[in-house]
Design a protein around this nucleic acid. Structure first.
Lengths: 203, 203
DNA sequence: ACATTTGTCAACCATATGGTTAAACCTTTT
DNA sequence: AAAAGGTTTAACCATATGGTTGACAAATGT
């Protein structure tokens, strides 16, 4: 059978599954909904991916794979800490504006199935804080940075960049922002977040 | 019929529903699971709350009501900005350590049903940033604070306090922390977060 | 004491849902 | 062109699920 046809069917299923799973999560998604989204028969889903769980795993892995590498900019590149923070904030926010469902999906599913994280950690290339920690400790020791634990700094960087997306509906409500106004606010954060962090840690 | 008996049945249903819904969300929760948790017949759920959706609404409102008032410490109290940040961070983190499923539940459900936020906003006492915004603008104008938009400052305060809870499993993985180590880290943040923010904004 | 209301439960119902099957339908191979 | 093998579909299936019903028990009012 035609490799192209097979690949394209598999691909269109995965695309549809991504659309549905990212919006509704594992529990809220329906196999029929994914089939409809892909414009194919429900049996095809099982033909190519066996079960809802395996299809979901494929989607989750793909989603996680697009976010995880960005962490290497912070954790494993050789740039200065300030450059890392500026670069990551700008790139991450730009990326997530284009994929707004991603962060929420990852958080939701990682909280739903904690054994899942164990699985991810065991994989190669799972981000680790080791190198970043050495870098921070060095800069704190030589007086370039205020004393701060690398763990806290890392959590803060993640929090300031990711939270505005996962809490968007609530924040819009509290701030009384329209979609356009909030989008504008998020746009500002491409530079605002890094400035905020660097203000806090630079001596 | 005995008011006490009625109240206690209703209460035990709500408690059970809270336990299940907070852990599994609307989509993942099962009415039978809630009945089992409450140790009663499934029909009772419908007798007291009509439908899954109404029971869920009751749980959600109760959950939201416990978190929303804490925002008033930031948004509407008369203390100084620094005191607010210190007070909120300490209180919020203390509170959520005792109710670890709450933040994730709120975020997940608010993202699932965005019309829900509209409903919340229309209610009285929904937190608004108005007063806080005036206070920040005043302090920026008189040179006490570095220039920063109140919106960004507010988002940052929320992000730094809430994110470590909603992303806990992932952060544990990246940081390589045990449950105990991570709990310790979160404990430190009761003061660390406020210090980080104040470092950044104080002149 | 007895009727009325309120609370509780087991059995039941209609539908939704993940998954299977067997036949039809291409493509490629020979 | 016929066999072979992968692909696609409609029809099914078993079970799970939210919700209903009718009988019965427990309070309450009179």
């Amino acid at each position: 059978m035609n490799k192209l046809k097979t690949n394209s069917a598999e691909k269109s299923i995965l695309d549809a599954a991504k659309t549905i799973f990212l919006q509704k999560g594992m529990d809220g998604a329906r196999m029929q909904g994914i089939a409809d989204e892909a414009g194919i028969n429900k049996s095809m889903l099982h033909y190519y991916f066996r079960s809802k769980e395996l299809l979901f795993n494929a989607v989750f892995m793909e989603a996680f794979s697009t976010l995880a590498p960005q962490l290497n900019e912070i954790l494993n590149s050789d740039r200065s800490i300030c450059d890392k923070i500026k670069g990551f904030s700008h790139n991450y926010i730009t990326f997530v504006i284009a994929h707004p469902y991603l962060p929420n999906f990852i958080l939701q599913e990682i909280n739903r199935n904690k054994a899942f994280v164990q699985d991810l950690i065991s994989k190669k290339h799972f981000p680790s804080i080791k190198k970043f920690k050495l870098q921070v400790e060095e800069k704190v020791a030589d007086g370039t940075l205020r004393p701060i634990k690398a763990e806290h700094l890392f959590i803060n960087i993640m929090a300031l960049n990711i939270f505005p997306f996962v809490a968007a509906p609530l924040l819009k409500g509290i701030l009384g922002s329209s979609d356009a106004q909030y989008k504008n606010l998020v746009e500002q954060r491409k530079t605002e977040v890094a400035a905020f962090i660097i203000n806090s840690i630079k001596l």
